[in-house]
């Protein structure tokens, strides 16, 4: 475990907790894309299939349970909670899941390290995670208003993967362990997707004005 990975995991943990706390306290999910949250629940499910078969460390297992638990409870809140669901903007959050899920699945079947069910599912989760934020970014552009917590949520999500890239670079040079190119590509694509959001986020923060994404 190196500092980059720990910082990345903590940033990731913080992002989901910020979101869960926001929804739980103000009982609203305004500006949050349910599609993205459902895609993340799918990412964690397909990524952590080995949670009960391969024990790596207590930290690893606990974090997996937290990510699974938080992503599913966020989906539950937006779908089922009698107050929160009213603030869900389903007319604007219209990104089709299968536009992302099908291509990632096909890609994972053809481009993977080992053609086994678990390995294909793991690769699928890497590809899907890279694009899962798209419905959220589309929603932010449509609604054109980003409340602070949502902006921080997306920023933290992008930052976590950028830290993971530093972790892969670090591990590449310090351990016989070498990062597989699929992980590199998916991680870089994911971080690049956030790049334009980062740009506008920093602009708004620097000029101390409300964050507006160009249409």
């Amino acid at each position: 475990m190196n500092i980059f990975r720990l910082a990345g995991d903590m940033t990731h943990l913080f992002s989901v907790l910020v979101l869960l706390l926001k929804i739980h306290t103000i009982k609203s999910c305004a500006g949050i894309s349910l599609k993205t949250q459902e895609l993340y629940a799918l990412v964690f499910t397909t990524r952590y299939l080995d949670i009960f078969t391969d024990f790596i460390s207590l930290y690893n297992t606990v974090m997996k349970l937290i990510f699974l638990g938080s992503s599913f409870s966020i989906v539950w809140y937006i779908r089922r909670h009698k107050i929160v669901r009213r603030s869900y903007d389903k007319d604007q959050d219209t990104f089709r899941h299968y536009f992302l899920v099908i291509p990632c699945l096909v890609l994972a079947v053809f481009i993977n390290h080992k053609f086994t069910f678990k390995e294909v599912m793991w690769t699928f989760s890497l590809y899907l995670e890279a694009v899962a934020i798209l419905p959220q970014l589309v929603l932010l552009q449509r609604t054109r208003n980003i409340d602070n917590l949502t902006g921080q949520y997306v920023f933290l999500l992008g930052a976590y993967r950028a830290l993971y890239i530093l972790n892969w670079i670090y591990r590449h040079f310090t351990e016989p362990h070498y990062v597989h190119w699929i992980t590199w590509i998916a991680g870089v694509v994911q971080t690049l997707l956030y790049a334009d959001f980062f740009y506008y986020y920093f602009q708004s923060w620097k000029n101390n004005e409300k964050l507006q994404l160009p249409a």
């Binding site: 790596i56 690893n60 793991w122 990062v179």
Partner: peptide, 10 residues
């Protein structure tokens, strides 16, 4: 066998 020890990551 190049065990993909990537799996120790989240």
């Amino acid at each position: 066998d190049t065990k993909i020890d990537q799996k120790d990551e989240l």
